[in-house]
């Protein structure tokens, strides 16, 4: 055991060599400056919440925050003021008059003139509402849309004609 300890003592003497390893002269003068530069260049806000990031960028907020941290009474007063504003806002919003829903007059659709924007929308192909066709069914496959709206024009308009068969007599 004593031999081991002696060997370890030699090892510890040898390990003391590592304490003499030093970076180039002036290295540590630049080190902190580079760290601060990297923090300033954008790595500062990476780990902060948006509120804290806002604190970094607004000096008056920093001073305000420092004052709040230093004076608990000021922090309490601010919180009371905020609560008061919140309660006042809630009370005011309750007292605000809202017109009843059922009493709003509805304009007559037939007599009301078309608004200019609506007219423009009707003229513009992109803004115009697409033509609405009635639903087709298996019994009436041909939609009865307005004339000319079909891509095939009149070709698509089929007319049903009654078929009459007359049989000659005498046969």
């Amino acid at each position: 055991m004593s031999t081991d300890q002696e060997n370890f003592e030699s090892l510890r003497c040898l390990l003391s060599l590592k304490r003499h390893e030093a970076p180039p002269p002036g290295y540590f003068d630049r080190f902190s400056r580079e760290v601060i530069e990297r923090i300033k260049s954008g790595e500062r806000g990476a780990g902060f919440a948006p509120l804290e990031r806002m604190l970094w960028e607004a000096p008056w907020l920093q001073r305000f925050w420092a004052a709040i941290e230093a004076k608990p009474v000021l922090a309490g007063a601010c919180s009371v003021a905020m609560c008061g504003l919140l309660i006042a806002g809630v009370i005011y919003s309750d007292k605000a008059e809202i017109p009843p829903v059922g009493l709003v007059p509805v304009a007559e659709t037939g007599s009301a003139p078309m608004a200019p924007t609506a007219m423009a929308a009707a003229d513009h192909p992109l803004l115009a509402k697409p033509a609405v066709f009635p639903e087709t069914s298996s019994t009436s496959p041909i939609p009865n849309g307005p004339a000319g709206t079909s891509l095939m024009g009149d070709i698509g308009q089929l007319r049903a004609q009654p078929a009459s068969f007359s049989f000659p007599r005498g046969n």
Partner: peptide, 15 residues
């Protein structure tokens, strides 16, 4: 990529 030894290493009595 080792750093250089400083001047004191040569005079360290242990070493």
């Amino acid at each position: 990529s080792l750093d250089d030894l400083d001047f004191h290493a040569e005079h360290d009595p242990d070493l």
